[in-house]
Design a binder for these strands. Sequence first.
DNA 1: CTCACTGAATGAATCGTTACACTTTTGTTT
DNA 2: AAACAAAAGTGTAACGATTCATTCAGTGAG
Lengths: 346, 346
Amino acid sequence: MSTPSVHDVAKSAGVSVGTVSNVLNHPHKVSPSTVERVQSAIETLGFIRNDAARQLRVGHSQTIGLVVLDVRNPFFTDIARGAEDKAAEGGLTVTLGNSDESIEREAKYLDLFEQQRVYGMLISPYGDITDRLESMRKRGIPAVLVDRESPNSTFSSVSVDDIVGGKLAATHLLETGRRRIAFVGGPMAIRQVSDRLTGASGAVRNVPGASIEVIELDALSVIAGRAAGADIVARAPEDRPDAIFAANDLVAMGVLQALLMNGSSTAVIRVPEDIALMGYDDIDFASAAVVPLSSISQPSAQMGQTAVEILLEEAANPDADRRQVVFAPKLVIRDSTAPRTEHLQK
Amino acid sequence: MSTPSVHDVAKSAGVSVGTVSNVLNHPHKVSPSTVERVQSAIETLGFIRNDAARQLRVGHSQTIGLVVLDVRNPFFTDIARGAEDKAAEGGLTVTLGNSDESIEREAKYLDLFEQQRVYGMLISPYGDITDRLESMRKRGIPAVLVDRESPNSTFSSVSVDDIVGGKLAATHLLETGRRRIAFVGGPMAIRQVSDRLTGASGAVRNVPGASIEVIELDALSVIAGRAAGADIVARAPEDRPDAIFAANDLVAMGVLQALLMNGSSTAVIRVPEDIALMGYDDIDFASAAVVPLSSISQPSAQMGQTAVEILLEEAANPDADRRQVVFAPKLVIRDSTAPRTEHLQK
DNA sequence: CTCACTGAATGAATCGTTACACTTTTGTTT
DNA sequence: AAACAAAAGTGTAACGATTCATTCAGTGAG
């Protein structure tokens, strides 16, 4: 009736429990004929190993905990995919937690994963959790930061240089003739956001006559972007920027929707003719947007893979040097930032 | 150095392990003063309960396993969100598995979740797994089907009537004057896909002179959609359909990209003027597409919530009657299916 | 003063697996 | 044929939390 255990399998195969366990974990230590006998017993009884018991004995689970800022952002699901694939090679599983840019939720997942004695943690941190991660490490749970560098190199990390990315984006806008740039994103507490702004500001400062204004959001979502876009639409035309750099693609898509919405009396704003628009992350949907979106692409799946690789190394050798892997972002040009001249020529 | 256990807490607080456990699980059985003493011991030692040990004793975990067909499809992450929220109310967690429309991966996740002795399963099935689920139920793991009705009501389910949805979509296309509809989707083994086709075919049959052709895909992805779209573009104009009904929004977005791609020599195809396009699921991005996409919306988050509710009931009372909750789909009209006449008038 | 009762606390048994020290079998070498 | 080594298999002690029968102390009734 209830689930059979190793004991039942042992009895049925006429061997000891130790042998059953060996068949499960170290088959090479068991003679081929016994392996087969045990396996057929497992088959007929429908034995399924109790992970909790295994974990209790071994001390940690076969699961890697991954906490991301937003599951709805394809950038993070891509990272998760990469991590999953790499983890599977080592017989590990990845479970995904969504902090949703909330300190409480983030803490909740850290608790949960520590209760589960996960094999290791991958986390794209929101709050300041280095102390917490440090105490987890003391207890044998290594962690690798994702999409964020470790403040003082106490943890390994896999990230993309967001300052360079921001610079890349702004430079491109400036090169296509734009001078009044609006940066839309937030909260600034998220390092990625502030870095992108820093990079963009730097580029703007190098060009005489160029300026950048900041429209701060409380979340990086389509909705928040739409609201910011609506604000811009509501302005007098001469107060509007001629380019918008959104902190990520979701925000950009929201902004885009707002700009193109056929407001009742408002004149239509054209993208890129009136306002150019840049996103960030280069998610799949960016190329399928109303106006295909220029963006900054990041090797998301590869980041996930690399993060797991580092985690595995660190689990095997806790005293290894921490590594900071920084990937380079890439500019992807699409219609939303087509140079003005090109359009005038038409 | 290593993680403290209930024993350490007990010693530090000067009570027995049983009492510590009671503070954790049945605080009302313990005098307030002791509760406080134990809790401060927990605090100072940094005790974190070992979930594996708890699980082993209790027999099952505090986690609900959710297997979806595609994590990258926002429809499913929305369901996951709804499920998570409801589960959290009952102190449960949801872990997400991605079967990715693969029998092997689906089986792998069923194994994994059974090894973990999950509290219950929510699954959007791909292969025929009723036997498997049935044996899990015998062992105390209830399951609720998501987005798919149970073949012979052996399981509770939460779904949307896809036949009605398909009919809604096709009827709308027919009402806007289209007569040669192409259904793009697959694999047909996925019930949702075949149901949507069935509904659409029924609607077409009622209109004299209308026809429907089927372009079968091997996956419901943007990529697969793009390939199908390219095939249509490659046809002679007179062989092209005047409307396309895609089995979901991702496919529709792929098709859309292919249709609008400025092929070298090919004449541009306009949407909706030359070909109207309908998606399914009404994901956030549908409204942000190149041409805002008409679609069929489903109450995804609510589906997740309801599924968890049913699961909790069934866990509490395994012999309760199975319930089949069917939500109604809704037609969402956007530009991609604007009637021809309207456009001709312009 | 004793008995019955209640609330609080105890501690051993238990869950299913794995590791490990140990015994038995098999095979090889002299 | 003896001696030894390697291979195969055994059985039991953990792992850490929860449960539950039991003990204990205190209260009030008779």
